[in-house]
Nucleic acid binder design. Structure first.
Lengths: 151, 151
DNA sequence: TTGGGTGCAAAGGCTTTGCATGTGA
DNA sequence: TCACATGCAAAGCCTTTGCACCCAA
């Protein structure tokens, strides 16, 4: 995504940050795997396939920066790793994070989006005076494949 | 809650587990603080107020056991600690976990329950063939108090 | 009696940090 | 040039594990 890359460079400059090979490489890896939920270590390994001389610390520092710039989303599956995926916020304007369905059997993660949740948030706001800015929704259960196999 | 405690003892025995002072003490602490979200360290400190000779490892081991017995719920706020609270599952039969509203300003955690989410889950199930067993919903935003103060 | 439970300390494992060196602007 | 970025290694920090001792059942 050369277009995306240009936007990224602009965003870095606008925030007084330098454009480095490492930062580009890390965003590239994440951009090329939308919907995957990568750990820092996985990102590190993927980046090194093309760019050997990167340190794990740089990956952690860059991830943190990308997260603050809202370019990537965090996902915590409580397995000891924090995972990251490229955000879709800037593609669908005004749309929040999608939600995750996590299969308890195979561990696969499915994503979905639903406007009903926006309705829910509005209702909460009215009832409790709480202004919702962001949300994280995880549904645990059994996916279609696993359910069919377990019959 | 002496009644609750008896149920707990029965549950332990039914699962081939022993009734120990430590286990009782830890459940007591959690039971006496419904709605609070305690870290292992906090539970450890609270237990030691009444029962000095407990080890942090025992707290971790007991927490894990209580979680497997569905007596407590996990909550991860991504601040490096896993938090626990007494579950309300056994009081309201058939009801899932409640949800959390987390204020980005003051850090307070508010809870709410809403049937709309059950509707959402049913819809997901029908659309994707996913059978939802459990969920974790966190809404981040600004609470009433903080919003009023920031005017 | 006896096998599970506990306390202590050490080890694990992900993530962050310090510091000297490198590099984009 | 020079402040920010990077790599490496060490440190941090929450949590788990090993092991000898203890205690419910």
């Amino acid at each position: 995504m050369p277009d995306n890359q240009e936007q990224f460079k602009e965003l870095l400059k606008k925030n007084g940050l330098k454009v480095t090979t490492q930062r580009i490489a890390i965003l590239e890896v994440l951009s090329s795997r939308p919907g995957e939920h990568l750990t820092a270590e996985e990102i590190y390994d993927l980046v090194r396939e093309k760019y050997q001389d990167i340190g794990l610390a740089t990956v952690y520092r860059t991830i943190q920066m990308l997260s603050e710039l809202d370019l990537i989303d965090k996902l915590n599956l409580d397995d000891g790793y924090v995972r990251y995926e490229i955000s879709n916020k800037h593609h669908d304007e005004g749309c929040h994070h999608h939600h995750h369905l996590i299969c308890l059997d195979c561990g696969n993660i499915y994503t979905f989006q639903d406007d009903l949740l926006e309705t829910l948030e509005t209702r909460i706001g009215e009832a409790l005076g709480f202004e919702v800015k962001d949300h994280e929704v995880k549904l645990y259960g059994h996916c279609k494949n696993c359910r069919l196999q377990n019959i």
